[in-house]
Design a protein around this nucleic acid. Sequence first.
DNA 1: AAGTACGAAATCGTATACGATCAAGTTTGC
DNA 2: GCAAACTTGATCGTATACGATTTCGTACTT
Lengths: 239, 239
Amino acid sequence: MSSTTVSTEIGSKSERAYAAIREKILGGEYTPGYRLVLAKLAEDLGFSVVPVREAIRRLEAESFVTFERNVGATVAGIDPTEYLYTMQTLSIVEGAATALSAPLITGSDIARARAVNAAMRESLAHFDPIRFTALNLEFHSVLFENCPNPHILDLVHRGWNRLQALRSSTFNYVPGRASESVAEHEALLKLLESGAGADDVERAARAHRAATLDAYLARNAGGQQDAPLHEKAPLARSL
Amino acid sequence: MSSTTVSTEIGSKSERAYAAIREKILGGEYTPGYRLVLAKLAEDLGFSVVPVREAIRRLEAESFVTFERNVGATVAGIDPTEYLYTMQTLSIVEGAATALSAPLITGSDIARARAVNAAMRESLAHFDPIRFTALNLEFHSVLFENCPNPHILDLVHRGWNRLQALRSSTFNYVPGRASESVAEHEALLKLLESGAGADDVERAARAHRAATLDAYLARNAGGQQDAPLHEKAPLARSL
DNA sequence: AAGTACGAAATCGTATACGATCAAGTTTGC
DNA sequence: GCAAACTTGATCGTATACGATTTCGTACTT
């Protein structure tokens, strides 16, 4: 990243520290469980502890790290329950955002989404999950970014960030689900082209995400420690 | 000066500063537009500027104040557009929370809600809008607090906080709407007693909030500066 | 008289220092 | 040998100080 940040560094040090730490978490340099020590971070990043502390508190608010008083911060880990909560919440807010976007979507938007979906199918054939995940975000972005309510849009972005923080692309991988997803994308586009009502769009968008979650839950049900998730599984399907 | 850290005081100073400032905003001591100067706040509260700054940043994240670099924080004001965004977002997340709570609700929950609703009707007869607003939160809390997804519940709480920060109880007052609201509450309770499905509960909960928003929009449409809100009005009804 | 340049006051942003608190390892008493 | 109390090391929490930035008033120019 950084794309040649010119000599005049933009933003306050708190903001730069936030961005830097966030990148290192998402980039995998700081793996879940890694302890983020203020003094060490400040040393590494070249800042003082105060802006680093502010960055950490912000990352805590966005659930990238957990924070314990007088103990410190650790990178948030992969937790099946958290994954379920996040996916369910995202199914709700993203469904709403997509429905609110639908009336404003243009033909060229749909064309672009269709091109992205084609690229997804291709990346699937080449076994490139990284690219697939990136394209998946791009596809859905086209569908929800026209949402005229910035609060809802913000919640959607937070949800996607959280999924990234959970490393869901490798975490929730379920064989066969990816190709299903591509097919559902095409169905979604057809629905939008047909000028369907907001309710139908919302339902379809929710169902799409719920299907991914269900696939994950179904796989885990066959696994070993299935008690806690089974108990909450109905939540995934109820909406 | 903090030579004797009295054990009665709990939480870090940042947290206490946050709580104190938040109370003063909600209590009306700091009205919208009021400039929150770090040094002055620190003086008033008896803390140093660092924890106060942290508190301010947190309040900013929750939209209680707006913050501008090198300028400072001001208490967020009443903005019809923000009100619309907040109500619409709340209709979505609260609708979902209520629907997810519905299967877990007990008979005594419903009895309590009904009692609260009776008190609302009474406070309406005595022209006590403060009490009415407080009871309204209590009523809805009974309906959504069983939501097993803490992320969604958190979003609902943020929405209600935001409404408080906007002072919606006086801001959005529409004659006649309050009594309608009480009637809709009873209908909601009957729906829950009938064991309706999650979809129906969600729709009803959304419609209840959308009706309040609609009443506000309808009143404002007859007002003076109606252009910007009219443009966004369809959003309110679409979900 | 209006607009601009400049300077002083106000305020935020961050560095540094030190006290407070917690976890863990070590000693002591039984 | 084991448990409880103590010591120690690491880390956070906050106060204070100072530099950076913006704002606003004032004088100067046109």
